[in-house]
Simulated assay, not measured.
Amino acid sequence: MSTSEHVASDDIVYIEHQGAVAIVTLNYPKRRNAFSLRMRQALLKRLNQLMHRDPCRAIVLTGAAGTFCAGGDISEMQARTVLEYRERNQLPLDIFKLMVEGPKAIVAAVEGVAMGAGVSLAAASDYVVCASNARFACAFLKVGLMPDTGLFWSLSQRVGAAKARELMLTTQEFNGKEAARIGFANQQVEPGTALAAALKVAHEYALMPPLAIAHLKTALANGIDSLDEAIETEVNLQPLLRRSQDHVEATKAFMEKRPAVFVGN
C-alpha cells in the first residue's frame, strides 16, 4: 500500500512510500518537470531526508505526468554574475553527490523525455529502468553549455569514455531501446510500466543489508579508481562489515535455511 507524505498535490517534488521503498516524484508537468531552481532545492531537501532520517531502505526517482525531466528550465537562464552562477550550480552538484555517495540505492524510472539534467539524474542513479520509447539527449551544447550535474563522471561510468564523449559532443537523441543497448539503462520495458519495474528492483534492494549497501556505494564512488585504492578500500571497509550484526544474521540464516532479516547494524 502506498502512503503519501506530501501536503499539497502541487508540491514540485513529493515523496510516497510503498513498504520499505520511497518514491520521489519530480512534479512540474507544465514544463515537463524541468530542473528549475525550486525543484533543485526541493529535491536536495527530500533526498537528504530519505538518505539520513527516513527508515526507507531504497529509493525510486521518477517524474509526474508520463515524463522524467526535460532538463534545465530555460526560462530561468538569464544573465547573472559568475559568483551567482557558481552558487546556483552547487545545488545540482550536491544532489549528484548525494545520489552517488548516499547510503541507499536509487532506481530511476524513466518515461517520456530525459534531456540535459534529466540524463544526469538518471545516470547518477544506481539502476535505470526506462520505457522503450523514452527519449534521451545530452543536450547541453544546444544551449551553449557543457554537461553538468555530475554527468562528466556518471555518463562514462555507464557507457564508457568514448561513447560518453560522442553523446555529449553530438547531442544526438537516443530512445529507450538504444539506452539499454549501450548500457545507459539497465532495463528497458514497455511504455507505461517503468515505475512498476523500478519498484520491483527497489524492493529487491530493500531486502539487502543496509550497511553493506552503504559501504558498497562509498567504495564505488570513491575507492576503486586504481588497484591500490581498490585494495585499500577493501581492507578498510570489509572488516567493519564482518563485525556487523547483519553479517552475523546472514550466516546464521544460511545455516538455518531461512531468509535473513537485516537491521542495518
Rank of each mutant, 00 (worst) to 15 (best):
T251A: 08
R242E: 15
I182L: 01
L169S: 12
V110M: 10
A214I: 01
A114K: 05
A70G: 01
R158T: 06
L155I: 05
L220I: 04
A230P: 05
L98R: 08
Q41A: 04
A109Q: 04
L195R: 02
R88P: 02
P29F: 04
C69A: 11
F184V: 00
Y85Q: 12
V100E: 10
L61W: 09
T233E: 12
T171A: 15
E84M: 08
D94T: 12
Q187M: 09
V110N: 00
M39K: 06
G63C: 08
L98E: 13
R243E: 15
Q172I: 04
Y85A: 07
D148H: 09
R88A: 13
E229W: 06
A161H: 14
K30M: 06
R242G: 03
A20Q: 13
I182F: 06
V107C: 07
T251G: 10
G72T: 02
V82E: 15
V128I: 14
K30W: 00
M115Y: 15
L220W: 08
R86G: 00
S154M: 01
A196D: 15
P209T: 09
S154F: 10
L155Q: 08
S244V: 00
V13T: 09
V235Y: 06
G160K: 07
M255N: 12
L37D: 08
E178C: 01
Q90R: 13
M39V: 01
D94Q: 13
P55L: 01
L216N: 15
L37P: 02
